[in-house]
Nucleic acid binder design. Structure first.
Lengths: 143, 143
DNA sequence: CTCTAGATGATAATGATTCTCATGAACAAA
DNA sequence: TTTGTTCATGAGAATCATTATCATCTAGAG
């Protein structure tokens, strides 16, 4: 942590990111699910699908994926949920019943935010917007 | 919850809400602070100000106040923070450095949301928007 | 095949929040 | 003012998601 850290050979090594059975399984599973899931739910599914993976590994993998932008994190009542996502800035409209979510671009908000920044003299503004509703499928179950 | 709820004697008893020393102290303190504070922070302040109050009571009181709309709850990294607020629907622009927050009305967003609902066939949409930035005071500390 | 850094699993630790339950105190009524 | 009912409080334990520890394993380079 001092300025005399060992001189790394050419700074060449971005922490290697090994492809393991567990990471592959988690990533594959998320690729098929369009809803937000908790680490527990992901773990439960993989176990019942015969994939032997520990809960800490699920958390560690999700943390990695979140860091690299592969998943979004949504926090609700003190619990985090995860969902694969695109990498551009966007929001989610999540169904409160089934968890199905659609991604929403945020163009109209950006202008509004820029104006607020000027008005209140805040700089470097970031925003988190989460939308939830009832999707058509859950609103009309018998259709 | 059904249409045959018990006929309350004149519907006269809204759970009584006693005014206690502890609740008064918490409420008074929040009235003076324009930033989001954790239950811990509130508890610490009150204790060091000589108010004898337990942490569970702080949590209980904040829960009551949140239910009645007297405070807003902001969740960050699994921790909740609380701040007195006005009762109309609004958002916050919070300083990432000092926590100072300003309330923002949300008019422009409502229309956008209504349009999204129609487009994706989601009904009954609610939204949470949190904005954070750097306030002018923290951006220019020596001024 | 060997080597080694990074990955994993079992387990314990952490930390915010909530619950339990015996005791204390508002406040309405006498 | 005194009493009685009921809600509020405090101390401590319980919960529960998440993270840390550490010995063991393994992907992938050479």
């Amino acid at each position: 942590m001092t300025s005399t850290d060992l001189a790394q050979p050419a700074q060449s090594a971005p922490p290697s990111e090994r492809r393991t059975r567990q990471r592959q399984a988690i990533s594959d599973y998320l690729a098929t699910i369009p809803a937000f899931l908790t680490a527990q739910q992901i773990h439960d599914h993989l176990r019942s699908a015969g994939v032997d993976v520990s809960l800490p590994t699920v958390y560690r993998t999700l943390a990695h994926m979140a860091e690299s932008g592969e998943v979004d994190i949504l926090t609700h009542e003190g619990q985090s949920s995860y969902r694969r996502c695109s990498t551009t800035h966007h929001h989610h409209l999540t169904c409160r019943v089934c968890g199905r979510a659609v991604e929403i671009a945020d163009a109209p908000i950006d202008e509004w935010i820029a104006a607020l920044g000027r008005e209140h003299e805040y700089t470097d503004i970031t925003h988190v917007t989460e939308l939830s509703g009832i999707c058509s499928r859950c609103a009309n179950p018998q259709e």
